[in-house]
Write a protein that binds this DNA or RNA. Structure first.
Lengths: 192, 192
DNA sequence: TAAAAAATTAGCACTTGGTACTAACATCAG
DNA sequence: CTGATGTTAGTACCAAGTGCTAATTTTTTA
């Protein structure tokens, strides 16, 4: 037997999500209904026609191409910052950040958030990580909201170094901690 | 005066690169020639029609979307691996990996390559980084090919720990080095 | 079981953004 | 003046639709 209308529409929706490049005609033969039925289904589900779908995918891509660099500069959203003092950022862990096999966040994402924050907190055009000692205290999972705090703990102006202590927490539990030694170009002999 | 054919075609090409979503009609009115002329121009320049262009952009995007997860599991391509012994991976640094301002690779990408390799070299379903001490020895730039070597230096089976020493080089110069302490589920008392 | 409602199919005119092709002009160089 | 090059115009056609009306089939329900 064929699918019921509900089943068909559900499958239709998924099919189009999986492959937005499919035409009504292909869908019709796949589900063994007429093209008109497919079109009625699309209307009911508010699924746009092939060309619109493709345009959407393309537009998305085009947008991302332009934006990907600036957005990526800091991983996580900085929600508070006092240059050369402290900074705070939020990073929402999603499915794409975890290992498929065990659902635990890959370490480099936590490091990326921490490292980006360490770079951001420094009031200088050029800040680079020189050395870092880090601890992955507790596994983080998809859905977790990681809050990173960076605290500038010291400076060595003769060597152009800044020292930062960093803690990341999920619901007030420490999941990641690290010390960062950063290099900066300008000596910046103390602001204020 | 209008543009010469050559000038027009050059501008046409750039216009379409900048915005692949433009129609022949829009181009015609922009260059103050007929739609037919635009079409002849496109033929001579082998520029496909609007829909094909959009489809290309979309297909590109789609491909990347699908691949991003599996590829991302390991940053860089593993070119050699002996489980629980050593591993080697290559990572080509591109524009998107560097800071816009100074062209230096963001630290977390080097860490990601290193960390992923440390995870990969362990012969276990579940490997997690517990602790790591890392040095960013020399700045890395776009175009550089980073080769990471991971060497298993020790184990503490009672604590389910594996110790790894990692070195990343660009043209035989060390750019990044680190020690990783990894956690694994299975004790794995030494494979042959 | 027959009538009503829901679902499906069919057909036609029309739309966009083109291709393919033919034919008519325009402009300029030799 | 003639020929080459460039430009414009017009026609038929295509894919992948929308919008609309109407007919047919299936299902529900009174």
């Amino acid at each position: 037997m064929k699918y019921s209308k509900k089943e068909r529409q559900k499958l239709l929706q998924q099919t189009i999500i999986d492959n937005p490049f499919v035409t009504d005609e292909q869908l019709a033969s796949q589900f063994k209904v007429s093209v008109q039925t497919i079109r009625l289904d699309r209307m009911e589900l508010s699924i746009p026609e092939l060309r619109e779908r493709i345009k959407d995918v393309a537009a998305h891509n085009f947008e991302n191409d332009v934006k990907s660099l600036p957005i990526d500069e800091v991983i996580g959203d900085i929600i508070d910052i006092e240059l050369d003092e402290r900074a705070l950022s939020i990073f929402d862990v999603k499915e794409e950040h975890v290992f498929q096999r065990n659902g635990i966040a890959r370490g480099h994402h936590l490091f990326a958030q921490a490292n980006s924050l360490a770079v951001a907190v420094i009031d200088d055009d050029l800040a680079l990580t020189v050395h870092s000692e880090i601890h992955f205290v507790k596994p983080v999972r998809a859905g977790d909201r990681v809050i990173s705090k960076a605290l500038v703990t010291g400076k060595d102006d003769s060597k152009s170094r800044t020292f930062i202590e960093l803690t990341s927490t999920v619901e007030n539990e420490v999941v990641f901690a690290g010390k960062f030694e950063m290099y900066r170009t300008k000596g910046q002999g103390g602001n204020q």
